[in-house]
């Protein structure tokens, strides 16, 4: 989302010639100021997470990671992402196809509606599912009668995560597919390809980097979601605590080294996400 433009615009040399830049001193001052700002806000937290995780030794670190509750949290986080990301991928594809290939009234409204989860606070995102599926919610009595558990159980966590990450793939693909145009698809049709063939063999390859990009972002958000999951989870250790919730529990129980140890897992995930992002951007700008 943030650097989606990198996929649709090529890097252009925008650096003016030597005589048109600031004096060296000014340059270095500006660089210094920028690095100071970034250092404070980005590097220090990053370093702290790893430092604190290992503050009580490597053995404590490993013990915290391999602790059963932590592993259960890892499993739940992975499961949630494994469900939410593919479904939102399908949603993103469908939405992008509809918006970029066709003309219809209300396109703007549709895209704005897709953006809605971004405008909603995570706490509210979780709350609406409690209002829908909680015992005193709209569907509560029906769910209780049929013995289906959504809130305070895994399905609720998955749903809240799906809500929060819904726009991410769509927002990558819509501008991408819009700027790519339909020439190839129309050509394929005239050559006798069916709709699905066109999609699979022409459209998908065109958008594959954007798709990957969106999936990477969606996954990072799905695994890291905290506020929404906190509301619907029930905080049952080992059952409905995802990794971020588990970090909170450990932190509130004064097990700081363990909290940061588990946090490193999420931080490593973030770093991997950033690396993949950079790689994809580099590939597409070649």
């Amino acid at each position: 989302m943030l650097a989606g433009n990198r996929l649709t615009e090529g890097r252009q040399p925008g650096r003016p010639s030597r005589s048109l830049t600031e004096p060296r001193l000014v340059q270095w001052l500006l660089i210094g100021a920028a690095m100071l700002f970034l250092g404070f806000f980005l590097l220090v937290p990053l370093l702290l997470v790893f430092y604190k995780a290992l503050a009580e030794g490597v053995a404590t670190y490993w013990a915290a990671i391999r602790e059963p509750m932590a592993l259960a949290a890892v499993r739940l986080t992975l499961l949630t992402a494994a469900i939410a990301v593919p479904i939102n991928l399908l949603f993103g594809l469908a939405a992008a196809w509809a918006v970029s290939k066709f003309r219809f009234r209300g396109k703007n409204l549709l895209v704005t509606l897709i953006d809605l989860p971004f405008a909603v606070s995570p706490v509210v995102s979780g709350m609406i599912y409690v209002l829908m599926f909680g015992a005193h919610g709209v569907l509560g009595p029906w769910l209780a009668a049929h013995d289906i558990k959504i809130i305070f159980a895994v399905p609720g966590i998955v749903l809240a995560t799906m809500f929060v990450t819904a726009p991410l793939v769509a927002r990558e693909l819509i501008p991408l597919m819009q700027s790519q145009g339909n020439d190839e698809e129309e050509a394929a049709l005239t050559l006798g390809a069916s709709g699905w063939q066109t999609f699979r063999k022409v459209s998908l390859p065109k958008i594959r980097w954007g798709l990957l990009y969106g999936v990477v972002l969606c996954n990072a958000r799905a695994m890291g979601e905290f506020g929404a999951v906190s509301v619907v989870s029930g905080h049952i250790r080992g059952l409905t605590t995802t990794l971020p919730l588990h970090v909170e529990i450990l932190y509130n129980e004064y097990q700081f080294a363990a909290a940061f140890a588990v946090a490193t897992l999420l931080t490593l995930l973030a770093l991997v996400t950033l690396t993949l992002k950079s790689l994809i951007e580099w590939r597409t700008s070649r």
Binding site: G134, A135, H136, G140, A144, K149, I151, F152, G234, H235, I236, R237, G238, L239
Partner: peptide, 22 residues
């Protein structure tokens, strides 16, 4: 036997159980 725990303010926990926390 595996015992799972949930902790929170007592009143809040009671309400959660009433609301469906099993």
């Amino acid at each position: 036997v595996e015992i799972q725990q949930s902790h929170g303010g007592s009143g809040k926990q009671a309400r959660s159980v009433i609301d469906g926390l099993e």
